[in-house]
Amino acid sequence: MAEHLEIMIRTLIAFASLFLGAKLLGKQTISQMTTFDFIATITLGSITANLAFNTSVPIHSVWISFAMFVFIIYIVEYTSMKNRKTRKFFAGDPTVIIENGRLLEGNMRKMRYTLDYMNQQLRENNIFDVREVLVAMIEPNGTLTALKKQEFREVTKGNLNLISQPEKHIVPIELMMDGVVITRNLQENNIEEQWLMDQLEKRGVLKKEVMYAVLAPNGKLYIDTYHDFIPQPIDKE
C-alpha cells in the first residue's frame, strides 16, 4: 500500500512539474514543433514518466534532471529570440519543394519527403493540382505553406475594387455559453445584457435553451440552441 501511495504522490508531482515547465517554456513547445522542440518534448515526457513510476530512483534526483532540462530549453529559446544565427541553428530554415509548378526533387530527397505526404499537405491547403502552385515550402515545424499562381488565387473584394464595410470589432465576442451569460465580455465591449435578452426574445429563444451565442465582427449575432431541430443528425456515433 505504501508503494501505491508513493506512486500516486510521484504522479501528482510529475504532472505539476510538467505543467509548470510547459507554462514556463510557452506555447511553442506544445504547438508548432521544430526538431529541437520535438526532442525537448520527448525528453521532458520521458523524465516525467520516470518521476511518476520509477520508484528505484529518488524523487529529488529525477526532479533535478527535469529542472536542468527545462532550464536548458529556456536558455536556448531565450538565446534564439535574441540571436538570429542561434535561432536558425536550432529551428532551421524553410525548404522550397515546388517552384512555378515544378517539383524540386533534390530538396525533397534531402528531407526524405515523399510524394504521398506532399499531396496530403497540398490537399490540406486546398490544392489538388501541383501546376497551380507558384511556390511551396516546408517550414521548420514540418508544415507546408503554398502560394498559388495568380490566375488560381481566390478573388477578393480588393481585386474587384469593392468597398468593404468596416468591422465593428476584430474578433468574435462570445456572449453566452451553456445557457450562462458571459458578463465580463459584455462589460468589456459595452454591450447591454438587456440587448442580448431582447435578441433572444425576438428569435423566440429562452436563455436556458442557448448553448452558444457569439457576436461576429460584422455585427451579426449567432445563436445555437441545445435542440437543433434536425430529424437525422449526421454526428451520431
Rank of each mutant, 00 (worst) to 15 (best):
N125G: 02
Y78D: 08
M177E: 14
V96Q: 08
N83E: 06
T79W: 12
K149N: 03
V70E: 05
A136Q: 01
D129E: 10
T95Y: 02
L122C: 08
V135A: 06
Q150R: 13
E193F: 06
I138S: 03
E151T: 11
L186R: 05
T156G: 00
Q187A: 14
K149R: 14
A146W: 00
M118A: 01
V181E: 02
N190I: 08
L122A: 01
V181L: 09
A67C: 09
K110I: 07
M81S: 13
T183R: 13
N119V: 09
W195N: 08
K85S: 13
N83R: 09
K168P: 05
E193R: 14
K148D: 01
K110Y: 00
E99H: 13
M68L: 13
E99S: 11
D178I: 07
I98P: 00
R131V: 09
R153I: 07
L175Q: 02
K148A: 01
E167H: 13
I138N: 00
E188Y: 12
V180N: 13
M68Y: 10
R102I: 09
E188K: 13
R87D: 11
M111A: 05
P172R: 01
P140M: 00
Q120M: 13
V180A: 11
P172K: 04
V135D: 04
T143Y: 10
P172V: 01
R123Q: 03
L115T: 14
M108C: 07
T183G: 08
A91D: 15
F69G: 00
P140V: 00
Q194A: 11
L175Y: 03
E105M: 10
V133Q: 03
G142F: 05
G101A: 04
T143M: 14
L147T: 14
R184S: 14
P172E: 03
I75L: 15
T86G: 14
T86Y: 11
D129Y: 01
I182N: 03
E77W: 04
N161G: 11
G158Q: 15
H169L: 05
K148R: 15
T156L: 04
